[in-house]
Design a protein around this nucleic acid. Structure first.
Lengths: 343, 343
DNA sequence: CAGCATATTGCAATCGATTGCAATATAGCC
DNA sequence: GGCTATATTGCAATCGATTGCAATATGCTG
């Protein structure tokens, strides 16, 4: 028996229909054990019959909990691109689904237009119980203020172990080391690094690049690190203009993202440089297209699924009185045509 | 003078500091013209000094407006992929930014885990004032129910002019016609269509494909329409298995999305088929990578920026008592290497 | 000064759910 | 039946902002 309500019902209507007080109806709907089982069943049945939903704003006001998490995507001020663009949809989807499962709603906004003071906007006005920031940018002051305010939040970014707030992210250093070690194993002697190290995550990838070179007894050359924005266009232009101007010969490129790598690849192919025979290429992110470009791109895969779940788990732990800790997620090298030379 | 509050302030605190009643303080903060300018200024200054933010839940309860819009991303039940994946980030970003500008918050969820009854969950419980659904899927029943309920919502999808609710979307038919007309102009004689016409948007693209053929005096062959999921992988496999099995010779492919096109391209290149000389290829969406694959992909660009803005504008118009109408957005053919044959 | 019109402000109620504590009901034991 | 312990329920207050309407203040005119 499903009755279509003519107007939005309130708990008061349900209570009246059940012949109990509003407080009893409220407790019954929330499975409060002090309510007799028969009463509880009756109230819940009536509510179900009427597709009754508690007024979320009334509940939030009374309980001082919104059951809402705000997610802010941090954009790079210069390119208006998120460093996490490649897998942003994946991670957002996981976060959204996981929050829904935990009984939370998810607010989404971007750093482009968000109010300057996140603490005030989200916490003081009771819009959200917690915050997930996607990306670290170049040490955004607003993130530091959140930390100062002691509000519950977590960040997807580069977990260095030294930050004052919980950061979840892939092991960028390890991923880069895997990539460059692989290029060396393919016989590459001189490898360029395309990526903007002013971003912590990319800085960690550069450290991993250096780790791999040093482990092979090769001294890293500073001029082989080329700051590159996170777009295929930047990768294309940088490869065109910088790689073949003053750097000398290269036989490898480690690009800090797949987008950069694809732009680089196009520049290489246009110059008639055979990939990977003459120059081997590795990206980072394993975007959907990486397997389907020609040649397919070797890349480092981040576990965005685990990342999204972990962000939610850590934040909810913090909200519920527990702790939230930084954590590094494992990465995996995905070998494809762009770097696999025939022996 | 910025004073850091020791605890969350309420309007009551601000009123006390200003020496006025709460109702005066409330009216002053909202620029109500019945309040004297001097009083208004005083209250607003004190609020600013304390970084005061009105409690959003209290306001929502009293005003019966949440100032929140829920955005639901509709996933294809089979592939767990959104048809709008290629430009979803773009459109979400525009929607988020535009809503922020209009003083609204944006909730995000996906159709994978959302409560079955959107009217009940979002409207009855006062979580949102309106709904934006991204994607139409295969005539999702939940969208029909929204229409029955008469709640304010808009959909990004295929505006056919016959739907009972406002749909904003690109002119898919026109876009496909442009693409196929272009392929014909490049000398293609037999063109396959890769896309799943069970989706309204793709169905419209197929109509445009047929329009172009008929305008050229060519009778469309049903067997050249191949249902293909919205992934590069599906495009790759379909092109491998179907195109070169029983279809006879082809010299053109119109793929209903860039992802499909890229998969198809890889399959063609692997077979040593020269693109576009032997077989010309056009996609749809103009994703970021389309310009940077090799050869770069000719595609149809959708104006997601205008689309996002229009979705918000139409929905807010509806919420504020006005009308919301379906609208078709213009598309543009972006000619690149994958279809440009040398004369 | 009185009267009238308008500006300004504050009281009190409201929104709808939740919860502390007191009142009432129920069950068990002597 | 009376007493005690426990179960169950309901009253009333609360959350914090907003707003209708009445009260009060102010300005102008005769």
């Amino acid at each position: 028996m499903t009755i279509k309500p003519a107007k939005t019902m309130t708990l008061s209507d349900i209570a009246r229909l059940a012949g109990v007080s509003e407080s009893t109806a409220s407790r019954a709907l929330r499975d409060n054990p002090v309510i007799n089982a028969q009463t509880r069943q009756k109230v819940q049945q009536i509510a179900a019959d009427h597709q009754f939903k508690v007024n979320a704003t009334a509940r939030s006001l009374r309980t001082q909990k919104s059951h809402t998490i705000a997610v802010i995507i941090l954009f790079d001020a210069k390119t208006q691109q998120a460093i996490t663009d490649p897998f942003l949809l994946d991670i957002l989807g996981v976060i959204a689904d996981e929050l829904t499962r935990q009984g939370y709603d998810m607010l989404l906004s971007t750093s482009k237009t968000t109010d300057k003071d996140w603490r005030s906007y989200y916490f003081d006005s009771k819009r959200a119980d917690g915050l997930i920031v996607i990306g670290q940018g170049e040490h955004d002051e607003r993130v530091e203020q959140l930390s100062d305010a002691g509000v519950p939040f977590v960040v997807w970014g580069a977990a260095t172990g030294t930050e004052r707030f919980p950061v979840i992210g892939s092991d960028n250093r390890q991923g880069a080391q895997l990539a460059v070690t692989h290029l060396l194993a393919q016989g590459c002697k001189r490898i360029a690094f395309l990526g903007d190290i002013r971003h912590t995550e990319i800085e960690m990838r550069y450290l991993g690049y250096q780790d791999a070179l040093q482990a092979a007894g090769i001294k890293p050359e500073a001029k082989l690190q080329l700051n590159t924005d996170f777009t295929a266009q930047a990768g294309y232009l940088q490869t065109q203009q910088a790689l073949f101007g003053e750097l000398g010969s290269l036989d490898g490129i480690f690009a800090a993202s797949d987008a950069i790598a694809m732009g680089a690849m196009k520049a290489l192919l246009e110059r008639g440089i055979k990939v990977p025979q003459q120059l081997a290429l590795v990206g980072f992110d394993d975007i959907a297209m990486s397997a389907y470009c020609t040649p397919s791109l070797t890349t480092v895969k981040q576990d965005t699924h685990a990342g999204g779940k972990l962000l939610v788990a850590q934040l909810l732990s913090r909200i519920n009185g527990g702790k939230a800790a930084s954590q590094l997620l494992p990465v995996k090298l995905i070998e494809r045509q762009s770097s696999l030379r025939k022996e």
